[in-house]
């Protein structure tokens, strides 16, 4: 079993600290990586049922549109406020260093300001949110 713990951080859109983990994203050919060195912080969002959603500029930088899923196969989601979101989705690879490396569907939206990790990426991992200590721990089974 491998285990990693990270401290909570403050999201760009809220003052309430949230669980963040460190990840790296690759295109399917592994010819590009984001960030090119090290990792980036991604907020764990249990309200999102995908794998990973990233800002559009990161999507373009990685040239993820080299393995993009046709938009007709992607359903638009209407949010509680009635807003319709049309995502762009491509196949890519996400790594939580030392924990997992997985081929996933990576979503992008122009109004996504920071990467969000969704439930599907975490579904085979044990995730513990320690609110009082403001720490998140992820481990393999």
């Amino acid at each position: 079993m491998t285990e990693k713990t990270w401290n909570y951080a403050t999201p760009t859109v809220s003052e309430v600290p949230a669980p963040y983990i460190k990840i790296a994203v690759y295109n399917l050919e592994r010819s590009s990586r984001y960030p090119s060195k090290g990792t980036l912080n991604a907020m764990v969002d249990t309200g999102f049922d995908g794998y990973l959603i990233i800002p559009t500029n990161v999507f373009h930088e990685l040239k993820l549109d080299s393995f993009e899923i046709p938009p007709d196969l992607i359903e638009t989601t209407e949010t509680f406020s009635g807003e319709r979101l049309r995502l762009r989705t491509a196949l890519g690879i996400v790594e939580i260093p030392g924990i997992i490396e997985k081929q996933v569907e990576v979503d992008a939206h122009e109004r996504c300001h920071e990467p969000l990790v969704g439930r599907r990426l975490l579904e085979n991992l044990v995730t513990i949110l320690d609110g009082p200590k403001r720490k998140i721990t992820i481990s393999t089974k």
């Binding site: 309200g47 049922d49 992607i74 359903e75 638009t76 989601t77 209407e78 949010t79 995502l87 979503d107």
Partner: peptide
């Protein structure tokens, strides 16, 4: 096929 729920979705999809 790609289906997503983002946050406070009502689950209504088009």
């Amino acid at each position: 096929t790609v289906k997503r729920t983002l946050g406070l979705s009502t689950g209504r999809k088009t």
